[in-house]
Amino acid sequence: MLDLRAVTAGYPGHPPVFRDVSLTVAPGESAGLLGPSGCGKSTLARVAALLHRPDAGTLHLDGERIRHWRHRAPRAQRTAFGVVFQQPRLSADPRLTLADLVAEPLRATGDREHLGERVAALAARVGLTGDLLSRRPHEVSDGQLQRACLARALVLRPRWLVCDEMTAMLDASTTAALVGVVEEYRAETGAGLLAVGHDRVLLDRWCDRTVEWSSLITPAAQAPAR
């Protein structure tokens, strides 16, 4: 159970992006989050994936309350989430080849057993073929890079997937392929999914449940108290 309650989050030096937002995702469920741009849905996804410490509110992961974010969070909690970001160009280190990119979480967690085979199997699964794995990010297309980023998110076999506008800048066939890989992985492992996006048609088809951003805000916060 991924349970965000009355979360307020923002960035230093600015007023909070959102206040008192609550969202619950059941294990194995896929939840789609729809919202206009700039409303804070990416920030909420970052809070959920332990990448951004909220200013207020609580996050319970499988019944356990999360008290620390980013590096302070225990490694097991951080790696329970596979995160795919919106812009593959920015979310891939430009110095690593795609093979290193995918293998990086395995190396970081010290899990080096059969590393090459596992990376190769995962690459085949996301559709990275041929010599693509030996190329660097600037030598591949956005779609191919996003495939590698999805492989990186899956390589530690996370219990939760957070896809932050994963397909926003991809064509229809790549979108279909990536969504297919995610669904195949979820069918196999029963992982939960939080998919953020603004494409209602896609999220409706992809997710068990689609929620509007406006419905997440706790009614008390909407009252003109401030």
Partner: peptide, 24 residues
Amino acid sequence: RPYVDAAVSGGASRWRVAVRHLLP
């Protein structure tokens, strides 16, 4: 950059992020 977020999510320690992603 988001790739540092990705590394954090992938279980990298502070030291590893600094040596592998920031210093190069």
